[in-house]
Design a protein around this nucleic acid. Structure first.
Lengths: 150, 150
DNA sequence: TATTGTTATACTCTATAACTATA
DNA sequence: TATAGTTATAGAGTATAACAATA
């Protein structure tokens, strides 16, 4: 054992390398559709459900309200989501997927499927399942608040 | 099977969540020592070896020369690395760890060890090994060029 | 002409904190 | 006073492209 551990001694470092590689490849793919990875996550989070308040979305996505506001601005500018007021509480806003956004989600989901499949093709089905199980175990043990999933 | 796959259907998404959680926690820890995660990676890459040319480091770390230059500037400003000219090729530069940097590396390595251990404590030793093996398999299959390790 | 390294510029992502409007 | 949301500011991280010096 050396006094100073190597970078590769840390699983966190390996995770960072693999995660960045997958995300960067996915980023290139969705860039062709004019969106970023963070925009895809917000869009998918809003898809197929009721309108959501920015503050609720912030909790769900593990981001600050300011970051959500900025991200929503970009998606609004692209016409992929809509923002409406809340009659009960005039402070409140609601975010929802627009018609154009709803049309784009399946296209992006397809790209996500392809990206994931091509990346994981290096592993057997059994290994893929084990990897998912281990990642889920880490997420569960560390609590959803630190790593919001839904 | 739904027409539009869920975010959690993608292993890349799970990887992103876990990786970000580990890295953000580590970032908080090393911030107490006045460095960022990327700075730690560069510092550790230079530690215990010969002086390295920025272009070689760029290949090694999977970054552009411009990004390396900017990162090196910050570490130089903090006095943790040194930059010297190359007598053989006057265009060339060499980056190496300074005395202050060499003193800081073991401290940061200790923080990395602790961060990794505390994060992985949720898994058994056996599971930890399996996770490392799976991540290594992905890195190997995808080639070092896309995901430089050393 | 090609290469090394730096600099200029730009954009994403994220955070903190100040601010506005409403409750 | 407290809350919802936005805006201002800042900094990390990264990329592309232009540039200067040298080969």
């Amino acid at each position: 054992m050396t006094a100073v551990s190597d970078l590769t001694a840390h699983t966190g470092y390996l995770l960072r390398i693999v995660s960045n590689a997958v995300s960067q490849e996915f980023a290139r793919k969705v860039a062709g559709e004019g969106v970023t990875v963070a925009e895809w996550v917000m869009l998918r989070s809003l898809y197929g459900g009721k309108a959501v308040a920015p503050s609720a979305l912030a909790r769900k996505m593990g981001m600050t309200r300011g970051a959500i506001s900025k991200l929503a601005d970009r998606l609004l500018g692209k016409g992929l989501i809509e923002r409406t007021g809340n009659p009960d509480d005039k402070r409140g806003q609601s975010l929802s997927v627009s018609a154009a956004g709803a049309k784009k989600v399946p296209v992006l989901a397809r790209l996500a499927d392809e990206n994931d499949a091509s990346f994981l093709a290096a592993l057997s089905n059994d290994e893929q399942e084990r990897l998912r199980a281990l990642l889920y175990a880490l997420i569960d043990k560390h609590g959803r608040s630190a790593m919001p999933l839904d």
